[in-house]
């Protein structure tokens, strides 16, 4: 059972205050196994980056009144609380040798281009691709071909970024 610490900085923001210190104090006080649930009057994009660099994954959603709720999950909980990504190893991946921006392509062209690009890569090389949705049909195909991937929505909540590491060369 995940334990949440709630921080509501909406009163501080409405009063014209700066909530960064309040948030970081709460983050630093988190005990292992705890997540942070933050309420703000806007989507705190800079904070997402700051906590992202500290190993927190986030899940941001807009509430009915235009406020935002963001759940920050520390790295030690991510394996069980967020969608698995196909890559279970924690090792560092090399920088991508190829980058594709497939956001404006008609489906299924984004998937076709990723598969075609991965076929030309050496085992261990990494490809990065931007998409406008989670490529649910691509993942089983990558798995069948022995490739691994890591993927998640970007902080904008619209762009899906997937990294594919070419696996062993294997015929279809």
């Amino acid at each position: 059972m995940t334990d949440f610490v709630e921080v509501d900085v909406r009163p501080t923001l409405r009063a014209g205050g700066e909530p960064f210190g309040e948030i970081m104090a709460a983050v630093n006080a988190l005990t292992p196994g705890q997540c942070l649930r933050l309420y703000a009057t806007f989507k705190p994009t800079p904070l997402l980056h700051v906590l992202g660099s500290k190993g927190f994954a986030h899940d941001a959603k807009e509430l009915d009144g235009g406020d935002w709720e963001v759940v920050f999950t520390p790295a030690d909980l991510r394996e069980t609380t967020t969608a698995p990504t196909g890559a279970t190893d924690d090792e560092q991946w090399p920088s991508p040798v190829r980058s594709l921006d497939n956001r404006d392509l008609d489906p299924p062209e984004p998937m076709v281009r990723i598969l075609a690009a991965v076929e030309t890569m050496q085992p261990g090389e990494v490809l990065s691709a931007l998409l406008c949705r989670e490529p649910v049909f691509l993942f089983p195909m990558l798995a069948k071909r022995g490739h691994v991937w890591r993927g998640a929505f970007e902080p904008d909540g619209i762009t899906y970024k997937v990294l594919v590491r070419a696996g062993r060369q294997e015929g279809p």
Partner: peptide, 21 residues
């Protein structure tokens, strides 16, 4: 059309020229 394309040509996508959906 989409499911047939995926079933039939999915396994060879990227390895050879395939039809579009």
């Amino acid at each position: 059309a989409f499911l047939t394309w995926l079933e039939c040509f999915g396994p060879v996508l990227g390895t050879t020229a395939t039809p579009r959906v």
